[in-house]
Design a protein around this nucleic acid. Structure first.
Length: 357
DNA sequence: AAGTCGGGGGA
DNA sequence: TCCCCAGACTT
């Protein structure tokens, strides 16, 4: 075991995080779920989602047998919904092909959807007693600073260097603790801004600290300007007090989630109701538009509340087009702005109903 | 190698 | 506003 791992483990025993929800009973299922939820997502954000998910799907059999809509419902607001779809697929595979047990093999783990090299390493080392390196955002930052690795980790060559260092430092014993420890170090001391080098167990050997260049590692991602796209949401309200949602295709943004139908402009919103729903529009209310930002573009959403004068009769009960009672948002996958709009629309409708009386 | 895929916290 | 977070997958 090298000095890096020795110092890290000593620090971890006293200062590491030992009470995260998925550490209390670190089964492969718990660790797997947490690792998927934690991809590109901060710990504090994940915790309530994790608790609710485990409560509804306590084990892999419950997850494998669940409806996709129920799984996506529990993921609503967390983002990167392909993670939930892949999680569900992997659960089905694990139950059908592996008797519900996780293979203690890095390649077999990586063959499951949603599990890449780092997540496979985390599951193997943390929950299955194996030895494998991980390389998440925390580890990249710690290693890039300690070894003064120049360049943005998104570059293949930089990532390869970091992976090699990660493998090199991973000890033969206490692998589980080491894996958790290096993530804890990155999350609590070796943070993105204002790292607490005074308390760091690796201060002695850290090259970035010696050069006083902590802020330069890891190298920054080259920034690109992102476009703004505009869309209108059709919020169709029936006399029965229902709102219409449309299931989005499995691929693309908000894949598999339910959303208000999208149209180009206000005129096509009425046409949509007449031609697709075979319904007459009694009133149109423009709700305040909202701006929703993704990593690669901004979306300007203009919501249009269309009150239908009679029930849309000719809609076949299509799987991808359904009405739901406006009272409470449905138990399916809803993107964050859709969930927000649902509540706003429901509030507007409640108030206007009161006003009528 | 570059693009796609969310949403929120922190500065 | 900007950056990035316990990344994986597609093109």
């Amino acid at each position: 075991m090298d000095d890096f791992a020795t110092r890290l483990l000593a620090w971890y025993d006293d200062h590491g995080r030992h009470n995260l929800p998925w550490q209390r009973d670190a089964t492969p299922y718990h660790v797997w779920l947490s690792e998927i939820m934690l991809q590109q997502t901060q710990v504090a954000t994940v915790i309530p989602y994790y608790e609710r998910f485990i409560e509804s799907f306590p084990d892999i059999h419950a997850l494998a047998g669940a409806d996709t809509d129920a799984v996506l419902h529990h993921w609503s607001g967390l983002g990167y919904y392909a993670r939930a779809r892949n999680l569900h697929r992997a659960a089905k595979t694990l139950v059908s092909d592996f008797a519900g047990e996780f293979p203690a093999d890095i390649d077999a783990l990586q063959a499951l959807p949603g599990i890449g090299r780092s997540t496979a390493g985390a599951i193997l080392s943390t929950a299955l007693g194996g030895r494998a390196a991980i390389l998440d955002g925390n580890v990249k930052r710690v290693l890039a600073r300690f070894h003064a690795v120049e360049g943005w980790p998104g570059k293949t060559a930089v990532a390869a260097t970091l992976w090699q260092l990660a493998e090199q430092h991973t000890p033969e014993s206490r692998v589980s603790d080491y894996t958790q420890a290096i993530m804890d170090l990155g999350a609590t001391l070796c943070t993105r801004s204002k790292p607490d080098c005074q308390r760091c167990p690796q201060a002695q050997g850290c090259t970035a600290l010696r050069l006083e260049r902590q802020g330069e590692f890891p190298g920054k991602k080259p920034k690109k300007s992102i476009p703004t796209r505009r869309t209108h949401f059709v919020i169709a309200y029936t006399p029965k007090g229902e709102l219409l949602l449309e299931r989005r295709p499995a691929s693309g943004i908000w894949g598999g989630l339910w959303c208000f139908p999208e149209v180009q402009d206000a005129k096509s919103a009425s046409r949509y109701c007449e031609e697709t729903l075979f319904a007459d529009v009694a009133a149109i209310t423009e709700l305040p538009s909202l701006r929703h930002s993704f990593s690669h573009y901004h979306l300007e959403i203009s919501p249009l509340l269309l009150t239908l004068s009679r029930a849309p009769t000719l809609i076949r009960e299509r799987d991808e087009l359904r009405f739901w009672p406006a009272k409470e948002s449905p138990q399916v996958g809803l993107a964050a702005p859709v969930k927000r709009l649902w509540q706003e629309a429901a509030a507007v409708l409640t108030n206007s109903k009161k006003g009528d009386k």
